[in-house]
Amino acid sequence: MQAVTTRRHLPRLRISGVCKAYGGKQVLRDVDLDVPAGTLVGVVGENGAGKSTLLRIAVGHLEPDRGTVTRTGAVGYCPQRAVLNDAFTVGQHLRLFQMAYRLPTQERAAELMELMALTGCRRQRVGELSGGTRQKLNLLIALMHDPQLLVLDEPYQGFDWDTHQRFWTLAACLRDQGCSIIVVSHLLHDQHHFDAIAHLRQGRLHFEETDR
């Protein structure tokens, strides 16, 4: 089984022999991936290579045709397209996800709002927000319960440069605290942030070590 460089202990996410087809098209073929604690893994590949499918299977949003997925600890998932309710306010989203995660307070969410410059938006309806601000909320929802495994599908789409940089600083900080992070990325200049890069080609993962 192909595994990403192991730093500590058992992997937080273990994908073994996963296959997935849409109609007659085989998107994932016997994919194996381990993401240990304290590791930041990048998943790259061409459009339609199956990156989002792999991540949706990883978090349990989609059933694989074959293979197993094992996750341990709380999971934070940031889907590629912001999955929010346009009719609800930012504050209502935070309240609903606070209940979903069984969080006693919104302390961490408030910190993240500050970090992402979202503090003034609490009463705004999501349908009125810009694309970048919606994406910030999309990401914040994945982070607000301090998950041990973070699965992020192009989480910085629409971010301005400063927010983009702050995102990578935050990701590095979470990784250093022991969080396992898997990020889909298209951007070549982001690839130095990863501990390992998994390249999805013709349904199979090919692993590349980085300089880190």
């Binding site: 341990t72 979903a100 995660y101 998950p147 699965v151």
Partner: peptide
């Protein structure tokens, strides 16, 4: 409903 693997069910995984 979203799917959960047996392990994730056992450990009470939550994803946002």
């Amino acid at each position: 409903r979203p799917s959960r693997s047996p392990v994730s069910r056992r450990t009470g995984v939550r994803a946002g």
